[in-house]
Amino acid sequence: MKIQRSSGNVFRDLGFEAKEAESLRLRAELMVEVRRLIEGRKLTQRSAASLLGVTQPRISDLIRGRIDLFSIDSLVNMLARAGMRIQLRIASRRRPAQAA
């Protein structure tokens, strides 16, 4: 069996282009946080929808992991409506080339 080290982004490892893989990774992380919030507060889908400013079917899609239906903006907006603070950290993936 051949084992390959992960790139750190499962979507990149699955063959997605770098830009799409990063978008999917961010959306997945945000979806996990929304789901944790819902479960942590023991909300029903209906009460979660009311809190997050979306419809109940939208919460159902989120719980079912329908990542293709959610943008980064929509997920950030949901978390913000719930009183969550979102922080963004930008980091370089590669070391800059050293001066010759």
Rank of each mutant, 00 (worst) to 15 (best):
M1N: 08
Q4D: 06
S6Q: 03
G8S: 03
V10N: 07
F16A: 10
E17R: 12
K19D: 14
K19W: 05
E20R: 15
E20I: 12
E22G: 03
S23D: 06
R25W: 07
R27E: 13
E29M: 13
V34W: 03
V34G: 06
R36N: 14
L37D: 06
I38G: 00
G40A: 04
R41M: 12
K42N: 14
K42M: 10
L43F: 03
Q45V: 02
R46M: 12
R46C: 00
R46D: 08
S47T: 15
A49V: 07
A49D: 03
S50A: 14
L51G: 03
L51K: 11
L51Y: 01
L52Y: 03
L52T: 02
L52F: 06
T55W: 01
T55C: 03
P57V: 06
I59D: 05
I59L: 10
S60L: 10
I63M: 15
I63Q: 09
R64Y: 09
I67C: 06
S71L: 05
S74P: 01
V76R: 12
V76A: 06
V76M: 13
L79M: 14
M84C: 12
R85N: 10
R89M: 09
I90E: 00
A91D: 11
R94F: 07
P96Q: 15
P96N: 11
A97M: 12
A97L: 12
